[in-house]
């Protein structure tokens, strides 16, 4: 799980072009949206694509996103349980 969390941080920084953010800057429990990393609605769509592309997870209900993308912690837990690749 620790490895997955670090991998996720790297992928999020790369995919979302978070230029001045490093893996070390993101804590596992930090909020990804709002006051945390300050991601926006387009970033949320990119995260949905990331789940599909990298882990073979298709979100059928976009409402799930709010809970899944709360933090690195919640994302990693969801990926661990649902990944197909």
């Amino acid at each position: 799980m620790v490895e997955l969390k670090e991998e996720l941080k790297g992928k999020i920084i790369e995919v979302l072009n978070l230029e001045d953010v490093t893996v070390g800057d993101i804590q596992d429990g930090d909020a990804l949206f709002g006051d945390g990393l300050g991601l926006d609605s387009i970033d949320a769509l990119e995260l949905i694509v990331l789940l599909d592309k990298e882990y073979g997870i298709k979100l059928s209900d976009p409402k799930q996103g709010k809970a899944i993308f709360k933090s690195i912690e919640t994302m990693a837990a969801y990926i661990s349980e649902n990944r197909t690749k």
Binding site: L16, I42, L45, E46, V49
Partner: peptide, 9 residues
């Protein structure tokens, strides 16, 4: 087939 929303906009 992975269109990027951030590119599409």
């Amino acid at each position: 087939f992975f269109p990027s929303p951030a590119t599409f906009v």
